[in-house]
C-alpha cells in the first residue's frame, strides 16, 4: 500500500496558516526588541563596578543559556502562578522568549563592547564626556556593528524557537499546524508545508535584519 499525498485539505486552512505566520512574526519581533534591550541592560550590569551585580547578571545569563527553552516556558506558564504571577498563554510566550533572548543577546553584546578599541573610550573621556554618554554615543554603534551578524542569527533562532510556545497553546504558526492536523489528519503534509513556511519566514527575517543593519549600523570602514 502506498501513501497518497494529499495537500488539498490544507488549502481551505490558508487563513489560519497566514494568521499563524503573522502571529509568529509578531511575538518574535516583540521578543527581539525586548530581548536586546534587556540584554544591553544585563551587559551593563555585568560590567558594573559592583561585584554582587556582576555576579547576578552572570548567574542569570548562564542559567538561561544552560536550560532548555521548553522548560523555561513551562516554568513561567505553569510554575510562576504559584508565586502569584499569572499570564495568559501569549503573554507567557512573549515573556519567555524575551527573557530567553536577553541572555543570549547579553553574551553577544558583551563581545561587541569588548571589540571596541580602548582608545575610543579614552577619547570620549578626554573630551570630558560621562560614562553614559560614552556608551550611548561612542561605543553603542560600533559595538552593535561588530556583532550584528551573530545578533541576527540569534534573532532567527528565536523566531524558530517560538514554535515551542505551541506547547502551552499560545497561538502561532506551529499551534495552527497542530490544529489543522487534528482536523484533517494530514500530518505529514501539514508539517511539510509549515516547515517550508518557516523556511520562508527565516529567509525573509534574515533579509530584513540585514537591511536594517545596513541602514542603521553601517558606516565606511577600511
Amino acid at each position: 500500500m502506498t501513501y497518497q499525498f494529499d495537500f488539498s485539505p490544507l488549502l481551505t486552512y490558508w487563513p489560519e496558516l497566514a494568521a499563524g505566520m503573522v502571529q509568529t512574526l509578531r511575538i518574535s519581533c516583540i521578543a527581539m526588541v525586548a530581548g536586546l534591550v534587556l540584554g544591553i541592560a544585563l551587559t551593563a550590569l555585568r560590567m558594573s563596578p559592583s561585584r554582587p551585580l556582576r555576579w547576578l547578571a552572570v548567574s542569570y545569563i548562564e542559567l538561561v543559556r544552560n536550560t532548555p527553552f521548553l522548560v523555561q516556558i513551562f516554568f513561567i506558564f505553569f510554575g510562576l502562578p504559584a508565586l502569584g504571577l499569572r499570564f495568559d498563554a501569549t503573554q507567557a510566550a512573549v515573556l519567555a522568549m524575551s527573557l530567553n533572548c536577553s541572555a543570549y543577546a547579553a553574551e553577544i553584546v558583551r563581545g561587541g563592547v569588548q571589540a571596541v578599541p580602548k582608545g575610543q573610550v579614552e577619547a570620549g573621556r578626554a573630551l570630558g564626556l560621562g560614562t553614559a554618554d560614552i556608551y550611548r554615543f561612542i561605543v553603542f554603534r560600533p559595538a552593535i556593528r561588530a556583532i550584528y551578524p551573530s545578533l541576527c542569527s540569534q534573532f532567527v533562532l528565536l523566531m524558530l524557537n517560538s514554535s515551542l510556545v505551541a506547547a502551552i497553546s499560545a497561538e502561532e504558526l506551529t499551534y495552527a499546524a497542530q490544529m489543522i492536523d487534528n482536523r484533517t489528519f494530514r500530518s505529514f503534509e501539514i508539517f511539510a508545508v509549515v516547515g517550508l513556511l518557516y523556511l520562508a519566514l527565516s529567509q525573509c527575517l534574515s533579509l530584513v535584519l540585514a537591511a536594517i543593519g545596513r541602514a542603521y549600523f553601517s558606516y565606511p570602514s577600511k
Binding site: V156, S163, F191, Q203
Partner: peptide, 22 residues
C-alpha cells in the same frame, strides 16, 4: 544546511515522526 538551520527543530521532529511510516 539551510533547511535544518531555517526550520524549527520541533517541526523537523514532527516531520520525521510522521514521515517514517510513509
Amino acid at each position: 544546511i539551510q533547511i535544518f538551520q531555517g526550520t524549527p527543530l520541533l517541526i523537523q521532529l514532527f516531520f520525521v515522526f510522521f514521515g517514517l511510516p510513509l
